[in-house]
Design a protein around this nucleic acid. Sequence first.
DNA 1: CATGAATGAGCGTTCATTCAT
DNA 2: CATGAATGAACGCTCATTCAT
Lengths: 199, 199, 199, 199
Amino acid sequence: MLQGNSRYEQARTAAIKAAAAEFAVKGYHGASTREIAARLGIKQGSLYYYFKSKEDALLEVCLYGIRDYAQRMQDIAANDQPFEAKLLATVSSHLWSYRSTDEALKVYNDERLYLPEEKRRHLKELGSSYREQLEGIIADAVETGQVRGTIDPHFAAQAVIGICNAWGDLIVRDPDLDIVALTQKCTGLLLGGFRDPEH
Amino acid sequence: MLQGNSRYEQARTAAIKAAAAEFAVKGYHGASTREIAARLGIKQGSLYYYFKSKEDALLEVCLYGIRDYAQRMQDIAANDQPFEAKLLATVSSHLWSYRSTDEALKVYNDERLYLPEEKRRHLKELGSSYREQLEGIIADAVETGQVRGTIDPHFAAQAVIGICNAWGDLIVRDPDLDIVALTQKCTGLLLGGFRDPEH
Amino acid sequence: MLQGNSRYEQARTAAIKAAAAEFAVKGYHGASTREIAARLGIKQGSLYYYFKSKEDALLEVCLYGIRDYAQRMQDIAANDQPFEAKLLATVSSHLWSYRSTDEALKVYNDERLYLPEEKRRHLKELGSSYREQLEGIIADAVETGQVRGTIDPHFAAQAVIGICNAWGDLIVRDPDLDIVALTQKCTGLLLGGFRDPEH
Amino acid sequence: MLQGNSRYEQARTAAIKAAAAEFAVKGYHGASTREIAARLGIKQGSLYYYFKSKEDALLEVCLYGIRDYAQRMQDIAANDQPFEAKLLATVSSHLWSYRSTDEALKVYNDERLYLPEEKRRHLKELGSSYREQLEGIIADAVETGQVRGTIDPHFAAQAVIGICNAWGDLIVRDPDLDIVALTQKCTGLLLGGFRDPEH
DNA sequence: CATGAATGAGCGTTCATTCAT
DNA sequence: CATGAATGAACGCTCATTCAT
């Protein structure tokens, strides 16, 4: 996932995951660098070999949490598929991200606002592009009549993201949740809500 | 709302609101008692006249955030109305709470897990009862055929809450958001998603 | 000396003196806030009731070290006395300052450059005004023929200050040094050096 | 100057100069081994090939700063010249040292006291011998009537050193300062101050 | 009711130093 | 010779909390 396979990069990725886990449970301000280090089996000061600061660690965790997820949205938007397939792919990708990035996506959602504006800029772009692409998919579907004309794409995109994130929290907390089934239910609900009742 | 109208109770409510505002922006761990006191125009130490501890303040804020909101759910569930009306009432109540309780509902959603188990018990009951009542409403609608039979009430209730909370965050951040219009859109989307396409 | 006689101001002055003593012996970077607090018989964290930061403490010490000293130079320059008297007054004031401000003047001399530019601005003004006034006194004496014309006032002022500071270090280290005698010797040396050999 | 011309000795001298530069600007406690290494283009840990410890580096810098300077004083004292020539030579040597030893002499003056007693012993001897020889030169001049009898050699030597060091600080900070002219002024001032006004 | 003053614990961070490679 | 990686100790600072006044 993260570019680079040197021993350093591997250790750094482990550090990012440890930070993600700690931030996810305690929140950014509630987490302590000592605990993050303990998860890695190193001493507190040694963390600074991998991160310039705790804030930097949060940024890395957030990036780790959304990088692939934003990339996949790009791919989905570029593909030439019917709306139903795109929505399913979006929901599926979103929900799976909660599993595959450990708790990093949750951290991105809940803690990114504690980063100062300048450090958050890149994150903001990735997040905005995600939402905008989803809005674009929905707007296209409105135009082609695949969803009813009264749907507001901006509202609808937020709703999709909102539902996915709400379930994402539960996915993180319950490792036994069946994501495939959940994806079906979410997509079904949303498709029903979007569909023109006359069709 | 809070029992008692003595000068003390009024001041205490002001303190709860100040804490809510601070917790909402900085998070529980990121907020400082000094800043909360500053919002009230008093000194740090004086806060302890209103709260036994910072943790106690968080508990009070959370209670303030969901007490009325849970009560209203109780009323909605008890009423004898068609499903569409109940869902509209639920969404409306939920979204308005984000406005009327200052940022306390957001704090309940985002920060309540930082309370130790024992202190959280009462909150948990209120929250669970909310969700269960919503599940009950949906289950009833399934039974009476007002929503399609493939809807899983537990899943659906989480989805309703998820959408409302996602928009709730935006409501808190953007004071100009038109909640009536938003309520319409949310309810419309959900009703469409729940409806049996054959009807 | 320091304006204000409230209990707080008294305690704060004591803190400034403790910081001065510690900075004088260990240097700014070598001194620890823990040790400064120990000198006061309080705990480390309590220091921050009196200083916003260690840097702020250094600034206060420097100000304490030169405030009166700069003021007295102002008075000397304003008075209408012969050059010999003014030089004697200058040297005397300078050397006595090393006694009366504890080690704060030494700290000003040795550590002020560790303050960031912006915080140092006020200090710079006081220090420059001191040197410029001394230069003015010497320039006047050149014009009136009280000192020989080959004397460069800028150079001469630095020399006066240099000698006084060199002896100041020794004054701080040796509490038994006779400052009156030292003042005589310094003034004598300088007057001799300044005087026109033809007179 | 430093014994040995092996590649190692050259590199070691470079390390001493780098340490001197860093100590001169930031002070001993404010300087970091990482920065010293950075000046040399090597990594922090590699410094320990040249110095046993940071303290050892300070000692080497101080020695580098005064070794030649003390040696030259020895030569001046041994020579058979009139007092005026000796004083000129002393001042000249002192001021030039600030240029030629990079900032090492400044470090010796300002930071040597941070060395523990035992490590400082050798430095102390060199410094004392410098001052004592200068005192000897002045005492001789008093005896032979080249300077007036009221001059206290100990006081006078400190004054010479004090003026030179005060200007030394400015020499280090201002690379354009004309040292020859400065030497003239300093010597002139001091000679005037020492001279018997009756002669 | 409220404050001024202090505390003790903890935090994020830096640093000189070590040592296997 | 030099580095990468880590360490342990210390540091400046903030914070929730207490309590006499």
